[in-house]
């Protein structure tokens, strides 16, 4: 099921990105709002937060250039902002609904590498955040660029070391669970 959703999503993305009519885009947004009725505010907030920097700067710059060159095309601004919103809203909605790992289960290797990576990322992220708190606890002076290089260099070494250890452990665990038997 998730596989077909993902396929449908990709086709929709392509279709939406070739639409240049603001009315149709607006209609799609309304349809998306209706489907995701309960989460409109939540998803919209996510979309705006994650796109505002890029889309905002492009829009502002486009306005400035348009005014200077006396060639401001408001239609373009509406089109690009609507399209960015539609596509990103669709993406956030779809990926909150589907189980990505199931959707990509057509390839066993890809599927396992994704799941394993995701687990490792959560694990590494926790350690990294702990490390950031530790730095907050111990560093009160402005550090120099040199200090940062040393600190990050050693942090990198810590994660490299952890990676070698974990890779070996995972490999053994997979073996013990019969992953390579087929």
């Amino acid at each position: 099921m998730d596989k077909y959703f993902l396929l449908g999503y990709f086709i929709s993305v392509i279709l939406i990105s070739i639409i240049h009519n603001p009315i149709i885009l607006l209609t799609i947004i309304i349809v998306l709002f209706l489907i995701s009725f309960k989460n409109i505010i939540k998803i919209s907030k996510k979309v705006i937060l994650s796109t505002i920097f890029f889309t905002g700067s492009v829009s502002v710059l486009y306005c400035i250039f348009g005014i200077i060159q006396n060639n401001l095309n408001v239609d373009y601004l509406i089109l690009i902002n609507l399209r960015v919103f539609t596509l990103n809203y669709l993406s956030f909605f779809v990926f909150s609904k589907i189980n990505l790992f199931k959707a990509l289960s057509f390839s066993k290797d890809l599927n396992y590498v994704l799941i394993l990576s995701y687990g490792q990322i959560l694990n590494y992220k926790k350690l990294f955040e702990e490390w950031q708190l530790f730095m907050k606890s111990r560093v009160v002076k402005q550090l120099s660029f040199r200090d940062y290089l040393q600190i990050y260099g050693h942090l990198t070494a810590l994660f490299f070391e952890k990676s070698f250890k974990n890779a070996k452990e995972i490999s053994l665990a997979m073996k013990s669970r019969g992953f390579f038997n087929d």
């Binding site: 350690l127 702990e130 490390w131 530790f134 606890s137 040393q150 050693h154 942090l155 810590l158």
Partner: peptide, 12 residues
């Protein structure tokens, strides 16, 4: 001052 649980992250 605080001693974190994992000594590895405290060393740099």
């Amino acid at each position: 001052a605080m001693l974190f649980q994992n000594p590895d992250i405290m060393i740099f």
